[in-house]
Design a protein around this nucleic acid. Structure first.
Length: 135
DNA sequence: CCGTTGACACGAG
DNA sequence: TCTCGTGCCAACG
Protein backbone atom coordinates (compact mmCIF):
# COMPACT_ATOMS: atom_id res chain seq x y z
CA UNK A 1 0.00 0.00 0.00
CA UNK A 2 1.62 3.17 -1.20
CA UNK A 3 1.73 6.26 0.94
CA UNK A 4 -0.54 9.17 0.04
CA UNK A 5 2.42 11.06 -1.27
CA UNK A 6 3.47 8.17 -3.45
CA UNK A 7 -0.06 7.69 -4.73
CA UNK A 8 -0.25 11.34 -5.65
CA UNK A 9 3.03 11.00 -7.52
CA UNK A 10 1.71 8.05 -9.47
CA UNK A 11 -1.50 9.79 -10.47
CA UNK A 12 0.42 12.94 -11.40
CA UNK A 13 2.63 10.94 -13.70
CA UNK A 14 -0.33 9.21 -15.32
CA UNK A 15 -2.10 12.54 -15.77
CA UNK A 16 0.96 14.04 -17.41
CA UNK A 17 1.38 11.09 -19.75
CA UNK A 18 -2.25 11.48 -20.82
CA UNK A 19 -1.40 14.96 -22.05
CA UNK A 20 1.01 13.71 -24.68
CA UNK A 21 -0.70 14.21 -28.05
CA UNK A 22 -1.59 11.28 -30.26
CA UNK A 23 1.29 10.40 -32.56
CA UNK A 24 3.88 12.17 -30.43
CA UNK A 25 6.50 11.05 -27.92
CA UNK A 26 8.33 12.57 -24.98
CA UNK A 27 10.94 11.44 -22.50
CA UNK A 28 10.80 10.22 -18.91
CA UNK A 29 12.90 13.17 -17.93
CA UNK A 30 10.53 15.62 -19.51
CA UNK A 31 7.57 14.19 -17.62
CA UNK A 32 9.58 14.59 -14.45
CA UNK A 33 10.32 18.22 -15.36
CA UNK A 34 6.66 18.93 -16.02
CA UNK A 35 5.82 17.65 -12.56
CA UNK A 36 8.48 19.78 -10.91
CA UNK A 37 10.93 17.00 -10.09
CA UNK A 38 13.63 17.13 -12.77
CA UNK A 39 15.65 14.34 -11.18
CA UNK A 40 12.96 11.75 -10.96
CA UNK A 41 13.02 10.41 -14.49
CA UNK A 42 13.64 6.99 -13.04
CA UNK A 43 10.59 7.19 -10.83
CA UNK A 44 8.51 8.05 -13.87
CA UNK A 45 9.64 4.77 -15.34
CA UNK A 46 8.63 2.97 -12.16
CA UNK A 47 5.13 4.39 -12.44
CA UNK A 48 4.71 3.14 -15.98
CA UNK A 49 6.15 -0.22 -15.04
CA UNK A 50 3.36 -0.65 -12.50
CA UNK A 51 0.64 0.78 -14.70
CA UNK A 52 -2.10 -1.88 -14.55
CA UNK A 53 -3.23 -3.57 -17.73
CA UNK A 54 -6.76 -2.80 -18.78
CA UNK A 55 -9.08 -5.61 -17.79
CA UNK A 56 -12.34 -5.67 -19.73
CA UNK A 57 -14.02 -7.81 -17.12
CA UNK A 58 -13.16 -5.27 -14.42
CA UNK A 59 -13.30 -1.92 -16.23
CA UNK A 60 -13.55 0.06 -13.01
CA UNK A 61 -10.86 -1.78 -11.14
CA UNK A 62 -8.32 0.97 -11.79
CA UNK A 63 -8.68 4.62 -12.61
CA UNK A 64 -5.52 4.52 -14.69
CA UNK A 65 -4.61 1.59 -16.88
CA UNK A 66 -2.98 0.67 -20.18
CA UNK A 67 -6.20 1.53 -21.94
CA UNK A 68 -6.37 5.17 -20.93
CA UNK A 69 -2.73 6.03 -20.33
CA UNK A 70 -0.61 6.19 -23.51
CA UNK A 71 2.50 4.78 -21.87
CA UNK A 72 3.99 3.92 -25.25
CA UNK A 73 4.57 7.62 -25.91
CA UNK A 74 7.25 7.81 -23.24
CA UNK A 75 10.77 6.94 -24.37
CA UNK A 76 14.22 7.76 -23.06
CA UNK A 77 16.05 11.02 -23.69
CA UNK A 78 17.73 9.65 -26.79
CA UNK A 79 14.48 8.50 -28.30
CA UNK A 80 15.31 4.89 -27.55
CA UNK A 81 13.02 2.13 -26.27
CA UNK A 82 14.88 0.22 -23.60
CA UNK A 83 14.59 -3.59 -23.80
CA UNK A 84 13.74 -3.85 -20.07
CA UNK A 85 14.40 -7.56 -19.98
CA UNK A 86 12.05 -10.30 -21.07
CA UNK A 87 14.00 -10.53 -24.30
CA UNK A 88 12.69 -7.13 -25.27
CA UNK A 89 9.07 -8.19 -25.56
CA UNK A 90 7.80 -5.13 -23.72
CA UNK A 91 9.84 -2.91 -25.97
CA UNK A 92 8.40 -4.60 -29.04
CA UNK A 93 4.85 -4.08 -27.83
CA UNK A 94 5.67 -0.45 -27.25
CA UNK A 95 7.07 -0.12 -30.76
CA UNK A 96 3.94 -1.74 -32.20
CA UNK A 97 1.64 0.60 -30.32
CA UNK A 98 3.64 3.57 -31.56
CA UNK A 99 3.52 2.42 -35.15
CA UNK A 100 -0.22 1.92 -34.78
CA UNK A 101 -0.55 5.66 -34.28
CA UNK A 102 1.79 6.59 -37.10
CA UNK A 103 5.08 6.94 -35.28
CA UNK A 104 8.02 5.51 -37.19
CA UNK A 105 10.22 3.26 -35.10
CA UNK A 106 13.63 2.15 -36.31
CA UNK A 107 13.89 -1.47 -35.31
CA UNK A 108 17.02 -2.07 -33.33
CA UNK A 109 19.66 -3.68 -35.45
CA UNK A 110 21.09 -6.61 -33.58
CA UNK A 111 21.63 -5.70 -29.97
CA UNK A 112 20.70 -2.08 -30.45
CA UNK A 113 17.49 -0.66 -29.08
CA UNK A 114 14.62 0.54 -31.24
CA UNK A 115 14.71 4.26 -31.85
CA UNK A 116 12.23 7.07 -32.44
CA UNK A 117 13.26 10.29 -34.15
CA UNK A 118 12.35 12.86 -31.52
CA UNK A 119 13.12 15.74 -33.85
CA UNK A 120 10.02 14.64 -35.79
CA UNK A 121 7.82 12.93 -33.22
CA UNK A 122 8.99 14.59 -30.04
CA UNK A 123 6.55 16.54 -27.88
CA UNK A 124 8.46 19.04 -25.78
CA UNK A 125 6.36 22.09 -24.96
CA UNK A 126 7.86 25.03 -23.13
CA UNK A 127 11.46 24.52 -22.35
CA UNK A 128 13.46 21.61 -23.47
CA UNK A 129 16.51 22.31 -25.44
CA UNK A 130 16.16 19.44 -27.84
CA UNK A 131 19.85 19.22 -27.29
CA UNK A 132 20.19 15.58 -28.18
CA UNK A 133 20.15 16.31 -31.89
CA UNK A 134 20.56 19.23 -34.11
CA UNK A 135 16.87 19.72 -33.88
C1' DC B 1 14.98 -3.64 8.30
C1' DC B 2 18.43 -3.16 4.69
C1' DG B 3 20.89 -4.03 0.47
C1' DT B 4 19.86 -4.39 -4.43
C1' DT B 5 17.41 -3.23 -8.68
C1' DG B 6 16.08 -0.50 -12.27
C1' DA B 7 10.58 1.52 -18.38
C1' DC B 8 16.36 7.38 -16.63
C1' DA B 9 19.59 11.37 -17.31
C1' DC B 10 23.73 13.88 -17.43
C1' DG B 11 28.44 15.24 -16.77
C1' DA B 12 33.46 13.61 -16.81
C1' DG B 13 36.96 11.56 -18.84
C1' DT C 1 31.41 8.40 -29.78
C1' DC C 2 32.06 5.46 -25.93
C1' DT C 3 32.13 4.05 -21.07
C1' DC C 4 31.79 5.13 -16.18
C1' DG C 5 30.14 7.35 -11.97
C1' DT C 6 26.54 9.62 -9.58
C1' DG C 7 21.89 11.23 -8.15
C1' DC C 8 17.27 9.49 -7.32
C1' DC C 9 13.83 6.69 -4.73
C1' DA C 10 9.95 3.03 -4.75
C1' DA C 11 9.61 -1.79 -5.06
C1' DC C 12 11.31 -6.19 -3.92
C1' DG C 13 13.25 -10.05 -1.37
Amino acid sequence: MPSDEAAEWYTSVYDAVQQIPYGKCTSYGHIAILLGYPKRARQVGVCLKYLPSFDESQPNDHEYHSGNVPWQRVVNAKGGISPRGESGLGARRQADRLRAEGVEVDEGRGTEEAMVDLSRYGWFPDELPMDYMGG
